[in-house]
Deep mutational scan, measured.
Amino acid sequence: LDMDCLPYGWEEAYTADGIKYFINHVTQTTSWIHPVMSVLNLSRSE
């Protein structure tokens, strides 16, 4: 699993305190969880 590779439309950013988060420019949303990890967690719960 390549954690450096973000899906299309996603960008890694940091808060003023240096905390990493992710921006989805396609849906105009943000997430604290890496988008690949959130997809993996969803697929495990099914």
Rank of each mutant, 00 (worst) to 15 (best):
D4H: 02
S38F: 08
W32E: 06
I33S: 13
S31Y: 01
P7C: 08
T30P: 02
A13T: 08
P35I: 03
F22T: 09
G18E: 06
F22N: 03
M37C: 13
T15G: 07
Q28C: 07
Y14G: 04
M3G: 12
T27N: 09
L40G: 14
Y21P: 04
C5T: 14
E12I: 10
V36E: 15
S43M: 04
I33N: 11
V26G: 13
L40C: 11
N41T: 11
A16T: 09
D4L: 06
K20R: 11
T27F: 13
A16D: 13
V39I: 07
S31K: 09
R44P: 13
S45C: 09
H34A: 06
Q28F: 09
S45K: 11
G18D: 07
K20W: 05
W10L: 02
E11T: 04
Y8H: 12
A16G: 09
K20E: 00
V36I: 07
D4N: 12
D2E: 11
H34Q: 07
W32P: 07
C5Q: 13
I19T: 14
A13F: 00
S31W: 01
S31F: 04
V39M: 11
M3S: 14
I19A: 15
K20G: 02
Y8S: 14
V36Q: 15
K20N: 07
W10A: 06
L42D: 13
F22Y: 14
A13H: 00
Y14K: 01
H25F: 08
R44S: 13
T15R: 05
V26P: 08
D2I: 05
E46V: 10
E12Q: 09
N41K: 06
L40N: 13
C5I: 12
Y21E: 00
D17E: 10
D17W: 02
W10H: 05
A13I: 00
V26S: 12
K20M: 02
V36T: 15
L42I: 10
H25I: 04
V36F: 09
G18W: 08
H25Y: 00
S45T: 12
S38L: 04
Q28V: 03
W10N: 07
Y8I: 12
M3F: 12
S45E: 13
Y8K: 14
S31C: 05
V26C: 14
V26K: 10
L40W: 12
K20C: 04
E11F: 07
S31I: 06
M3N: 15
S43D: 14
